[in-house]
Design a protein around this nucleic acid. Structure first.
Lengths: 235, 235, 235, 235
DNA sequence: GATGAATGAGGATTCATTCAT
DNA sequence: TATGAATGAATCCTCATTCAT
């Protein structure tokens, strides 16, 4: 992605200009797409509407994106970039010494805040139609988020098998998304209440996995939750 | 008009006679709709496709349903009826003496089983496009399910304000749906693992809310997290 | 048209019953059709809507009328019958001694009154779509009305060639219809004003044609137009 | 966006460049629409038929017109423009010294001639379905014509209240339309005869309203009907 | 006679995408 | 590059009419 308009110190300015213009167009289009996706959802968004919103012709749109999905994918990519730029590689500072509750709370707050700043995010995460068929752009977004959550979880559960970590990450993301949907469906105090509940859900879900860990840095070898109902050790 | 109430020997005798064929058609159409909804999702499902799947002409479809949404609504209604017929009014036997874990486990198992039997259910619950816009059929289904969960919760939390019960029910349903989506996205042992996780999520989320009920402090091995973030009364 | 339910003196009552029932159905359907035509116009009226309005099934409608136009035709016929029954063969008592102004005024008033009593009349006269294509039912109505006007005109203009009478009749009817449309488009005093204008139009148009004729009562024996251009009395 | 106001050498230079093809298409489509409207009437005309007649795909039609009515409206607008371009602002030269008969005769002749040149005009004026429902395009056309007639009438009747002028204009237009319909339904000599009659109708209707104008009583050969029913000032 | 189911072509309109300029 | 025109299949839905019962 040529988003480096930086100096380009030599005389060869033409291509830069071109690319710069193209970059602007792309940004314009993505912004328009974000707006339209938010307003009508991905499936109902028409490329013509996006072009109109961006103030360009449909032909121009197709000069930069081969089809509708490509727009969503690029949008998702940029969103992930932005997220990474803002919050780093994981969803929260991965200091395992942080109390879980705090870590979860912070992660949720960030997640929510990010969504409020970039409402498209939610529209994109919400797979367009049928849950079985996973569209590429959804998938990319999803995979990236799962990865980020895995990073976070791994720091708390260093000895847990990868498969379990992955599953837990998926569960967390699913709950995140569901909770976010609930929160966004309400406003003001009620929204906050839902955010609180989401934190509770996640914290309580994860807590036993971390268990005994009163997090004396010393004894944290993640003893596998004695009374845990969950995770069957094997698979 | 054949309102001829002749004989009327049994209770199940409808006042109409000619509807026999029609009733069959309706069932046929709903079945086709279910199939198409599952295959392509609600929004992308076309009435023509449904008619084609049912082996009738589009006109016939519109003889029985005024529009696409009506089909979804009727489908949802029948599903709820079936659920009620199969499992009774609540999601689980409402005996408050039942250990929460068992109750949650049973409810989830039933929910999952029902969804495996009737895959449309999931397709219908999945809001079609933009989360803001709530379609009627989605709404009806959702409301019914929330109500059922409220019944279940009330038996465990008799003293909790209605607003909190409702919110908790929404949270539970949201998590249910998210967990179901995860489970259905996998198969075999992995699916079971996800189901187990869903049970954990719900149980752990609800457990602290229930504490102090009929539960003798003795058997509580997970003491309700002293620094619990739970439901702060006001805001 | 079997609209003679008169005695039918013998014992053979079955067929009468049948016909009576059929007559009722037909009347029912025509009434419904009138209502629907008025509400939506002829072209937009659907046979299904008419059947529904009549409280019968579409199949039943087609048992009595071969198609939509037949309904309009029959409706028009009945309307003409009613008109004839109410006002006699001409649009006004054909006493040529009547001052033209009075005759025109009376004719217009009757025409307007009839239309207020039978609003379908207007809907039917208003040819459905394209003025060139004359539909049968429109044509029948039109022809009958022209004939009636010709009768009226002939009594005033006994010596005018048939072609001219016919043309004048067409002109009168055209103005009648146009004036009626204007009148019906308004209400109360304004409607009355338009009716007055219509009378003026017709009176002033016809007056010069009648001209010199101060019509001394003496010579008025209603000579049935020896050179009658018009309608052969019989038919 | 090519708003490039380059040179702008003449006044007829539109700010757009690529519309050349489009403008042609629009003309093409309007022509096709005119043809179809004439052939089947407005209501029965289908957009697909218009597109087909124009030799383009339905989508192309909708690139230029948002719906069927917009086509009719544009068609009407262009027609009014043409009329204005051809005949000026009023239906006839507004010199009040012109004898009424001449003025009316000229106006009718022009009206008829215009309709012969542009047969759609008539199809558009003909309200499509039910007289109550006035469609926009009909309304616009109608209003423009009424305004033009009002201009004409005002020059002859400077002292008449606006409401009366308006009503008279409506009456005139109504009669115009009715007479036109009659004339167009015939051909050759008969058509001319109908046109003559239309002139008579209008002239005789208006004449008494004008009496006493610049007309010296001497030249009034038709003394204004002593018992004239005409315009009663107030009621 | 009466019913209601069935038809299927046709209605207006949309949309992702391509193409000539 | 950018434009706007062009496409055509697909969308939902309607309707006059027929048919089995």
């Amino acid at each position: 992605m040529p988003e480096t308009p930086e100096k380009q110190q030599t005389a060869d300015e033409r291509p830069v200009r071109r690319q710069a213009r193209g970059e602007r167009r792309i940004a314009q289009l993505l912004e328009a797409a974000a707006s339209v996706f938010c307003a009508t959802g991905y499936t109902s968004a028409s490329t013509n509407a996006i072009a109109r919103e961006a103030g360009v012709s449909p032909g121009t749109l197709y000069q930069f994106f081969p089809n509708k999905e490509a727009i969503a994918i690029e949008l998702g990519d940029r969103l992930m970039h932005e997220m990474r730029a803002t919050y780093g590689e994981a969803l929260a500072p991965v200091d395992p010494a942080t109390p879980l509750e705090e870590a979860v709370g912070a992660a949720v707050d960030r997640f929510v805040a990010f969504n409020c700043d970039h409402p498209v995010f939610f529209a994109l995460m919400h797979g367009p139609d049928i849950p079985g068929r996973i569209t590429e752009e959804h998938d990319a977004l999803h995979a990236t988020l799962v990865a980020r959550i895995e990073v976070l979880l791994s720091s708390f559960l260093p000895d847990t098998p990868a498969a379990d970590i992955t599953r837990t990450a998926h569960v967390c993301l699913g709950m995140y998304k569901a909770g976010l949907e609930l929160a966004l469906a309400h406003e003001g105090a009620e929204r906050e209440a839902y955010v609180r509940e989401l934190k509770n859900v996640l914290f309580r879900y994860l807590e036993p996995l971390i268990s005994g860990r009163t997090v004396t840095p010393a004894d944290v070898t993640t003893p596998p939750a004695p009374t845990d109902v969950t995770r069957t050790p094997s698979s």
